[in-house]
């Protein structure tokens, strides 16, 4: 089921926003392949009719009332920012204008 390729690792690194050097990409390709081999045993389980569990405790409908709560002080929030300007977070320029949906 596995046999992860180096090209896939390059794609994953981009999806995950990890700027990895070449040797690291090779290293991860090998390790991910080994790990995927080990976890592939889950596919041995015949579970077609088994429902998936996403939440360990079967609760539903947990809501809050539509009321306002205190906000954080802007100064405290922006003090943690790597860069801020005019009461806003300053971020590097956005080269890709393809704003996601």
């Amino acid at each position: 089921m596995s046999a992860i390729t180096r090209a896939e690792v390059v794609h994953l690194a981009r999806l995950a926003r990890l700027d990895l050097p070449d040797d690291a990409l090779t290293h991860y390709a090998e390790q991910l392949d080994a790990i995927l081999d080990a976890v592939a045993m889950v596919s041995e389980v015949a579970a077609d009719d088994v429902p998936a569990t996403s939440h360990p405790v079967p609760l539903t409908n947990v809501f809050r009332d539509d009321t306002n709560q205190p906000c954080l002080a802007r100064a405290e929030v922006l003090a943690q920012a790597p860069a801020a300007e005019d009461g806003r977070f300053r971020v590097p320029r956005i080269l890709d204008d393809e704003e996601p949906a």
């Binding site: 009321t67 205190p70 802007r74 806003r88 977070f89």
Partner: peptide, 17 residues
């Protein structure tokens, strides 16, 4: 979260964790 949704507030004043 309980932050207000009003339009036109000072930037980053209607935020919480």
């Amino acid at each position: 979260c309980g932050c207000p949704t009003t339009f036109g507030g000072q930037p980053n004043t209607q935020v919480c964790p």
